[in-house]
Each structure stands twice: as structure tokens, then as C-alpha cells.
Computed example of a mutant assay.
Amino acid sequence: MRDPLAPPSLRRSAVVFDVAVGAVAVLVAIASSEGQTVWMAVSGGLIALGLLVRRRLPTVMMTTAVASAVIQVASMHITVLSLLYAPMFFTAGGHPDRRVRRGAFVVAVVGSFVAGAVFPHAYGDFQTGDGGLGWATVFGTVGTGVVVLGGWTAGFVGHQRRSVAAAEVSETISELERRRVLDLYDEQAERSRLARDMHDVVAHSLAVVVAQAEGAKYTLDANPDAARDALGVIADTAREALADVRTVLEQLRSTESAGEIDRDDRDQLLDRMRAAGMRIEETEVGSADDVAVASVRVAHAVLTESLTNALKYGDLAHAVTVHHDWTSGCRLTVGNVVADTPLAPGGARHGIIGMTERAAHVGGAVSSEPSGDTWVVQLTIPDTEGTRT
């Protein structure tokens, strides 16, 4: 049964690290168990168990931490493994659930005072007459506070940093989504305008041609001159229609050139992502100038979507790799480490579907799949459209 407080996913390296720390704690507990009571050994074992599962099973971690503390208070003995409460409170302080963070803080504060009260009895027989008991209580309280509240504070600061990063990422994602919607709106508006222009040209010209052809058919025998004139009108109309169609096509070409993606556009995209806290390692082979305009536009759209997904679901502590290969077409590879706790979990996969459709329009293909701890998006567009002119 899955722990309801556990993160949605954990990298293998994090699990291995927790197992290693837990194993070390077990060895320390065994080494220090000589001369101790059974309850101290049990308390140390519970602490080691809590460390072992602190991220996979946070509920078990908190239960074992409290249980080991209760045993130490009841037996009036403090195990040296209590220093390992720090990483457990670090995990609780950085937990995404506010109730866990607040609960852990309360436990840390109360536990510090309780430990201060137990400390004089656990380490020596202090007499109240010379103030030794008071100083021992203060020392125990402060020392415990440094361990548990220090660990909690470090975890909470990490959580706050992640929250700020998530807010910045959300703002960047919103801006990218807004721009994408505007681009789609402009593209649809341009399609509608071109459709109207083509309709006007074709419908008007064909109507004239049909009318003149019908007239010429009925007057060909009775009035050859009128039929000849009608054929002349048909020819003139066809030439004008051809010129109008060429004009519309020129407009289409000029629109495509106006929206051409260049290196500055890519640099602006990368700068926006870096401003959101992403580290990007970019490499490039060949030049985009040697690839068809449509392929460059699709590559830029796929790069934008891939980096957006890396912001949503990637671990910003690791760099995102971007590699362009413009030789023999276009090959774009974007890789990012998947975060244990994504800044924007969920998703309907519309972005991947959109990338696939865009690539298909230019004869390319997109793959988007995990490779170990890394998510890799790869776009491949063959050199079937020729180079730029």
C-alpha cells in the first residue's frame, strides 16, 4: 500500500542514498549497543529505520521518530543516534504538505524542551544547589533544538526556494502558453484571410469563364464573331485569375518569410528559460540556414514545448541538454532529468500530440520517452524539402 505522504516518484539515486545512510545508521546502532539497555537498542533501530524510509515512507519515518523519542524519555536515556533526527526533520520541514511541515515544527519545539528536561537525568546526577541542573537543562534544550529545529529549518528553506522557483516557472509557462495561443490565433486569422482571397479570385473568375463559355457554345454557329469575343474574354479572365492566384501565393510566401525563425528567436527562448532558473547546455552541428524554413519553424516549436515540459516536470538542479544537428535535415534532441516532485504535476499530453502533428506536416517524427532518470524528446526531419533559397 502506497504511503499517502510519499512523493509521486523518486530517482534511483535518492533511494540508494537513503539505503546507504540507513545502513550506516544500523551499523552505528549495533556498534554502540554494547553496554546499553534493550530499549536503547530498540530506539536506535527505530531511528535507523526512519532514515532508511524517510522519503519513500514519510509516515513510517515520523512514526518511528516519535516512537524512539518516547522510548528515550521513558527510559531516561538518550542514544547517540539522536543526532540523526536532523535529516528526518529536514525531510519533514521540506515536505510539500503544509500540515506535515507545521506538525513537524511543533514536535521539534516540544521535543527540544522535553529533551532538555531528560538530559540532566540521562547524563550525570546534577544538583540543584549549584545550578548544575539548570545549566544541564538549558544545554539539553538548546542542543536538541540545534539538531531538530536546525534540520527542520534547512528543509523549510529548501521548500521555500522550490516554491519561489515554481512560481517563476509558472509565470514563464503562462507567458509561453499565451504566446502560443496568440501565434495560433494569428495563424488561423491568416488562413481565413487567404481562404477568402482564394475564394474571391477563384469564384469570380470561374463564374465569368462559365458564363462566357455557355454563351460561346450557343452562338458559335449563329454568330462566330460573338463566340470569338467570348473566347477572348475567357482567355483574358483566365490570365487575370492566374495573376491573382500568383499574388495570393506570393503573400503566402511573404507571410512565411516574415514568420521565419532565426538564431535570435532561439536565443530569446533560451534566455527566458534561463531567467526562470533553468540551466541549459546547448550544442549545435551545422547551420539552420541550410535547412528548409518549415523545418526550422517546426524545430523551434518542438524546442519551445520541450523546454516548457522540462520546466514543468524536470529537476532544475540539473542542466537541460539541447542538441541541434542541421546536417541532412534536422535532428533535435532535448533531455532533462525528471524531478521527484514536479513543479507543475499532471498534464493532458496535448503538447506531445501537438509536437507530433507539427513534425508530421513536414515529413518528420517525434519521440518523447524516459531513459533512466532522464526524459528525452527527439525530433527528426529528413532532408526532403531542400535548402533555403
Rank of each mutant, 00 (worst) to 15 (best):
D18P: 01
D18A: 08
D18K: 03
D18W: 04
D18E: 12
D18F: 07
V19M: 13
V19D: 05
V19T: 12
A20R: 06
A20M: 12
A20I: 14
A20C: 12
V21Q: 01
V21R: 02
V21N: 01
V21L: 12
V21T: 01
G22F: 00
G22E: 04
G22H: 01
A23C: 12
A23R: 14
V24G: 00
A25S: 08
A25L: 07
V26G: 05
V26F: 03
V26E: 00
L27W: 04
L27R: 03
V28F: 14
V28H: 05
V28T: 07
A29F: 01
A29E: 07
I30H: 12
I30G: 06
I30F: 15
I30Q: 13
A31W: 03
A31F: 05
A31Q: 10
S32G: 13
S33Q: 10
S33F: 05
S33M: 04
S33L: 06
S33E: 08
S33G: 10
S33D: 06
S33T: 11
G35P: 07
G35V: 06
G35D: 06
Q36R: 15
Q36N: 12
Q36M: 09
Q36S: 14
Q36F: 03
T37H: 05
V38E: 11
V38L: 14
V38T: 15
V38C: 08
W39Q: 12
W39E: 11
W39K: 08
M40G: 11
M40P: 02
M40Q: 13
A41H: 13
A41T: 15
A41S: 15
V42A: 14
V42K: 06
V42D: 07
V42S: 09
V42E: 08
V42W: 07
S43P: 05
S43A: 15
S43H: 08
S43T: 08
S43E: 08
G44V: 00
G44M: 09
G44L: 01
G44T: 00
G44R: 01
G45D: 05
G45H: 02
G45S: 01
L46T: 03
L46K: 00
I47A: 02
I47E: 00
I47L: 13
I47Y: 01
I47W: 02
